[in-house]
Computed example of a mutant assay.
Amino acid sequence: MSQRIDYYKVASNGLKPLLAMESYLGEQTTLDPLLKELIKIRVSQINGCAYCLNMHTTDTRKLGETEQRINCVSAFEECGFYSDQEKSALRLAEKMTLISDNHISNELYDDLRTYFDEKEYCDLVLTISQINSWNRIAISMGTTI
């Protein structure tokens, strides 16, 4: 597939809110940067976004993450090398990405709140929403690696 439209050029004003959200998530959240990258990888796996998978696995390596944890994120539930906090956040990422089939239960919310305060929970939801938006844009526009 080749790039269909240079959306940064054609719709730059439409991308400004997404870029502002990136700035917020990068500068005004206390979420662990590695956790945010693991979330972006898992969501991009579910959505099948090669461009974002390539970007975020590269970014995760730059932050010092191990190949084992990068390679196994799709099977995080079966792996003992993800923390309970990370697993809880990755569960939310999966549920939100496939939300029409998987509503966010009170049990999952309660579990998340044992690890994340109100602002951090909001920032998790925004992080997951943001990468879902980028995946959909990249896939629809034919963004290539």
Rank of each mutant, 00 (worst) to 15 (best):
residue 145 I to V: 14
residue 7 Y to E: 02
residue 144 T to L: 12
residue 135 N to R: 09
residue 135 N to F: 10
residue 20 A to R: 02
residue 12 S to A: 14
residue 52 C to H: 08
residue 145 I to D: 11
residue 91 R to D: 03
residue 41 I to W: 06
residue 76 F to E: 11
residue 59 D to I: 08
residue 81 F to K: 03
residue 64 G to M: 05
residue 23 S to Q: 14
residue 124 L to R: 00
residue 76 F to A: 06
residue 56 H to I: 09
residue 81 F to S: 04
residue 16 K to L: 06
residue 132 N to G: 06
residue 75 A to L: 04
residue 65 E to T: 09
residue 128 I to H: 03
residue 118 E to C: 02
residue 10 V to T: 15
residue 49 C to G: 08
residue 120 E to M: 15
residue 31 L to F: 07
residue 36 K to M: 15
residue 103 H to C: 00
residue 45 Q to A: 02
residue 83 S to Y: 09
residue 104 I to W: 10
residue 51 Y to S: 09
residue 69 R to C: 14
residue 43 V to T: 08
residue 13 N to H: 02
residue 39 I to P: 04
residue 6 D to W: 03
residue 52 C to M: 13
residue 129 S to G: 15
residue 62 K to N: 11
residue 141 M to N: 11
residue 129 S to T: 14
residue 73 V to R: 01
residue 142 G to V: 10
residue 92 L to Y: 07
residue 106 N to T: 13
residue 106 N to F: 05
residue 19 L to V: 02
residue 40 K to C: 10
residue 90 L to M: 08
residue 127 T to D: 01
residue 39 I to V: 02
residue 106 N to R: 13
residue 125 V to C: 14
residue 35 L to S: 02
residue 107 E to S: 13
residue 19 L to C: 00
residue 102 N to E: 11
residue 53 L to S: 02
residue 144 T to Q: 15
residue 110 D to N: 14
residue 89 A to M: 13
residue 21 M to S: 07
residue 80 G to D: 12
residue 143 T to D: 04
residue 130 Q to V: 01
residue 110 D to P: 07
residue 92 L to E: 04
residue 111 D to R: 13
residue 144 T to W: 06
residue 60 T to V: 04
residue 22 E to H: 05
residue 79 C to F: 00
residue 108 L to N: 01
residue 11 A to T: 02
residue 87 K to Q: 06
residue 106 N to G: 11
residue 42 R to W: 09
residue 37 E to D: 14
residue 118 E to H: 11
residue 108 L to D: 03
residue 128 I to F: 11
residue 27 E to L: 12
residue 142 G to C: 01
residue 30 T to A: 14
residue 21 M to H: 01
residue 72 C to L: 12
residue 28 Q to I: 00
residue 139 I to S: 04
residue 67 E to H: 06
residue 134 W to E: 03
residue 31 L to N: 08
residue 24 Y to W: 01
residue 69 R to Y: 05
residue 81 F to A: 07
residue 1 M to W: 07
residue 139 I to K: 10
residue 31 L to Y: 10
residue 63 L to M: 12
residue 33 P to K: 09
residue 128 I to D: 05
residue 128 I to T: 10
residue 37 E to A: 13
residue 53 L to N: 05
residue 39 I to H: 02
residue 45 Q to F: 06
residue 124 L to H: 08
residue 90 L to R: 10
